[in-house]
């Protein structure tokens, strides 16, 4: 979980990393050592899944905003499972 939390926090704090994540997602996930459910959730930006595996809601939400996911889209996804 630490690697996932670190990635969520780093994306929130670093707009350059956020850009690189969008362009080179797999490479960034490799750098943070993410595998399994957390890797799959980040690959597909499945925020509902990130909640289910226990990531901190603040960090999921802030990371989503930094990745240019609108607030309405974010809440629509976690309420209805759309992504």
């Amino acid at each position: 979980m630490y690697g996932l939390h670190k990635l969520l926090w780093d994306i929130r704090k670093d707009s350059e990393l956020a850009k690189r994540f969008r362009a080179q997602t797999s490479e960034v996930l490799n750098e943070y050592g993410l595998e399994g459910d957390s890797r799959q959730a980040m690959l597909t930006l499945d925020f509902k899944k990130l909640h289910e595996i226990g990531a901190n809601p603040y960090l999921i939400y802030f990371c989503a905003l930094q990745l240019q996911v609108g607030r309405e889209s974010y809440y629509e996804q976690i309420r209805e499972g759309k992504n």
Binding site: H51, P57, Y58, Y61, Y75, I78, R79
Partner: peptide
């Protein structure tokens, strides 16, 4: 209040 969760609002 709820932050980043479905109950937000």
């Amino acid at each position: 209040h709820w932050v980043g969760l479905p109950e937000s609002g």
